[in-house]
Design a protein around this nucleic acid. Sequence first.
DNA 1: TATTGTTATACTCTATAACTATA
DNA 2: TATAGTTATAGAGTATAACAATA
Lengths: 146, 146
Amino acid sequence: MSTPQETDTDFGWALFAVVRRYRHRTDELVADLPGGPRGYQVLLGSQQIGPKSQLALAHYLGLDRTVLTYLIDDLAAAGLVERRPDPADRRVRRVELTARGSTVLAETRRRLRGVEDDLLAPLTPAQRESLRTLLHLVATSEDTAG
Amino acid sequence: MSTPQETDTDFGWALFAVVRRYRHRTDELVADLPGGPRGYQVLLGSQQIGPKSQLALAHYLGLDRTVLTYLIDDLAAAGLVERRPDPADRRVRRVELTARGSTVLAETRRRLRGVEDDLLAPLTPAQRESLRTLLHLVATSEDTAG
DNA sequence: TATTGTTATACTCTATAACTATA
DNA sequence: TATAGTTATAGAGTATAACAATA
């Protein structure tokens, strides 16, 4: 009772609480996409790293390459991405967004942005900016642990 | 190209990136607990809300009550929690931490705290405090969306 | 009739290994 | 021999419904 350290490990707790609410509200927004939330992540990742190999994309997304095969199968069948052979290495399939994939991604991002705004509504604009920046810092900093 | 909104929806991306790293480093710390990460969450939730019904605990944790049954089965078998009948309502089983459960929880929290410190090491102490506070605000604010 | 907790079933997701083709 | 991608299999996790006990 005299040690107010209750909230010390609440970072992990708060992290998962926020994720739970985020997913709860965004699941329906990406439900129409092949692969749902992970399908969206593949589209976003493809745009972010450009036309790389599936393996590179899998590493970037933290997914297993076997999972990525299924996801890309479905996204390609829906015409959102294309597998293009790499002229320099015929084993490699470069994953590229199609024009339609870009459109769908942009539209989905726009709707997700609405949910984010909603979720962060309790914060002031300055606080929102701070939270985005700090979280981005933690997300992109080098991994220091073995 | 002229609209620098690339990072607008990166809140969601950063959120999941941080969670992925957090889980990757903490999974082994809770692997010994019955139920793994979710077992830990049950222990922490039990302490946080006190001896409530399983249904109340399930709601608090965002878990399904059927999942909670299995988790509590395993935690109880390991002597970390106890199901106690509620004298006021014989349908209800109050979930309480045992002395050993409290010890295990405290020790696990201590180790998780080490991982958090590691993860947040790129930030200054002031930034860490800010991030914890802001995330906690978002996590605990009232749900405004239907 | 509604609620708490348990059990049973099926569905999804994930992890592992084996396979093909290229290097 | 090693790597990129695919396929097949089994395991874990999850959701749904049905059930028993109590309110």
